[in-house]
Design a protein around this nucleic acid. Structure first.
Length: 287
DNA sequence: CTCAGCTCCTGCGGGC
DNA sequence: TGCCCGCAGGAGCTGA
């Protein structure tokens, strides 16, 4: 499910319950997610204080105070179906209640303030790791990532260089986390639509001017989605304690055969499959 | 090296 | 109602 905006929303939702708090109790309910969890995972998290929550691409990075060892970072990737659910002392009004674990609840953390954070992941494409904070950028999953689209290292020129010579559809190039980090299937479709670029166009063949539009739309689209996530976060307690899922109106994603939303466009959204994944686009607006 | 296709896993919705 | 199929927001691996 989650792409960069959803992951950022989850990070922001976790912040008030985790930041500055001690992980008083950690329960690991199976040995692996996508990969085996690190040795003595629960034991190594237990008793450590959270110093900061960061995000890199689709990874949530939870910096921990040094325990018996050096400062380490608890890394969390939600994969396709990973969810973070919060309940406990401060959310006793929730009908959502994890007192007894439910199906696919894999990791359960209780803080010193009595908040309970449950990681639930049906498809188990998610991942967790524990890595020294000082060398985090060398972690195998982080080392190859491209620039953070909402960071200072991303702009039109950078995207142009990344596209240069790429004889692959721009859709695939944008899904490649080495090009830009954090985009997934939905936001690639949306940004290409907003940029008027056809998804099958070869990345290396797009003019500098149009790459600049694309870079700008990537930043704008992600920013707006995070904003939408933030507003949903403010009343997530009314829902079910599940972080990161929010209503967002997509212009093309999952709108096959629906009318194009562009003002005077009479076209309808089309769905094609590119490298095994659905692409949605307007054949009239995107060239 | 680059790229397309397959793969992991479970759940859900549509068609019959 | 139940069964079967295709599909799902990620991304690593394989082999051409």
């Amino acid at each position: 499910m989650p792409e960069l905006p959803e992951v950022e929303t989850v990070r922001r939702g976790l912040e008030p319950v985790l930041d500055g708090h001690v992980l008083a109790d950690v329960v690991q309910r199976r040995p692996d997610l996508r990969w085996p969890l690190p040795e003595r995972f629960a034991e190594r998290l237990t008793g450590r204080r959270v110093m900061r929550l960061r995000r890199r691409s689709k990874w949530i990075l939870i910096d921990l105070e040094a325990g018996a060892e050096v400062p380490e970072t608890w890394m969390v990737h939600l994969g396709m179906s990973g969810k973070m659910l919060i309940d406990g002392a401060e959310t006793a009004d929730l009908h959502h209640d994890r007192a007894t674990p439910q199906k696919h609840d894999h990791v359960v953390v209780t803080t010193d303030a009595g908040a309970r954070i449950t990681y639930n992941d049906a498809r188990r494409f998610g991942a967790m790791d524990l890595w020294p904070t000082a060398t985090l950028s060398e972690h195998p999953q982080l080392a190859t990532l491209g620039p953070e689209p909402l960071g200072n290292d991303f702009n039109a020129a950078v995207l142009e260089v990344a596209f240069a010579g790429r004889m692959t559809p721009v859709k695939a190039a944008l899904l490649d986390q080495k090009t830009v980090a954090g985009l997934g299937n939905i936001y690639v479709c949306e940004t290409l639509f907003r940029s008027g670029i056809h998804p099958t166009r070869m990345a290396g063949s797009i003019s500098a001017k149009r790459v600049a539009v694309l870079a700008r739309e990537i930043v704008a689209t992600l920013g707006e989605a995070i904003e939408a996530g933030g507003s949903s976060l403010r009343d997530y307690r009314k829902a079910d304690g599940e972080l990161g899922y929010f209503q967002h109106a997509f212009k093309v994603y999952d709108r096959e055969e629906k009318p194009c939303v562009t003002g005077d466009c009479v076209g309808e959204i089309r769905r094609i499959v590119q490298s095994g994944r659905s692409t949605f686009y307007c054949p009239k607006c995107q060239r």
